[in-house]
Amino acid sequence: MNASTLLLFIPACFALNMAPGPNNLLSISNATRYGFLASCFAGLGRLLAFSAMIALSATGLAAILETSELIFYVIKILGAAYLLFIALKLWVADNLEVDTKETPKKNLLELTKQEFFVAAGNPKAILIFTAFLPQFIDPSQNIAPQFAVLGALFLLLELIALAGYAMIGLHLRRWFNQPSGKRLFNRTCAVLLSGAATLLLTTRRT
């Protein structure tokens, strides 16, 4: 793999990482409610899910999703249902005023699991890895090391992206510390997550 390939891959990949989506929206929401570090820690669940997807793509197992309509739709429905569940929790969330110097109690394991299941519940993500990463693979060379390098770069850029979205949430926290502001923000996130769930339900295999 040469430098010119990496120079093409990095900006294209980072554009995917920074694209607004359910996981990035969760980073904002978690940072707003629990703080920057908690949001970044929770993002490890997303990285774990993406690592598994990259491994599946590298080993060719993603072809199962491309050939099995049943498996694709089962994962899609479960993923959409989970997004709707999170949206409902945000819609009815406690909106009491919180001191901006204090951080509400949080269960980091629960937040990490939430990020993991949101990422894993989107079968299109595996298909993106299947379609995107191979474009930068040189078939004349050993494929496994190339997948490893590209996968590692993707995860590093994803980490930067989730930290960026968490920083956005941290700044929003200063604006939405009042009950009315928190309610508006939580319900806006709930609507956007519901919209993401709807889009997920309408996606088809390509």
Rank of each mutant, 00 (worst) to 15 (best):
F176C: 12
A15Q: 14
L83N: 01
E97W: 11
F14R: 08
F129T: 00
S68L: 07
P123V: 06
L199E: 13
I143G: 00
N186K: 11
R187L: 09
A42H: 12
D138R: 03
W91T: 11
G181A: 15
I168Q: 05
A81E: 02
L155Q: 01
V191T: 10
M167C: 12
L8N: 12
L133F: 05
A131L: 15
L200K: 10
A38E: 11
T130F: 12
P134S: 05
V98K: 13
L109V: 05
S180Q: 14
F41S: 05
F132M: 02
L192N: 05
F116A: 09
Q146D: 02
G79V: 04
N107H: 11
I71Q: 06
L26C: 14
K106F: 08
L127T: 02
F36W: 13
G21C: 13
A144R: 11
T59C: 14
A19K: 13
L61I: 09
V92H: 12
I54P: 00
A62Y: 11
L56D: 02
A58Q: 06
A161P: 01
A87V: 03
Q135E: 02
P123H: 04
L88C: 08
R173S: 14
E66W: 08
Q114C: 04
N186E: 15
P134T: 05
V191L: 14
F117W: 15
R205G: 04
A93T: 00
A125I: 09
N2W: 06
K106L: 01
A81L: 15
G169E: 12
E158N: 09
L65Y: 03
A166Y: 09
I10D: 13
L78H: 02
P145L: 11
Q114P: 00
L153T: 02
D99R: 09
L192Q: 09
L65M: 06
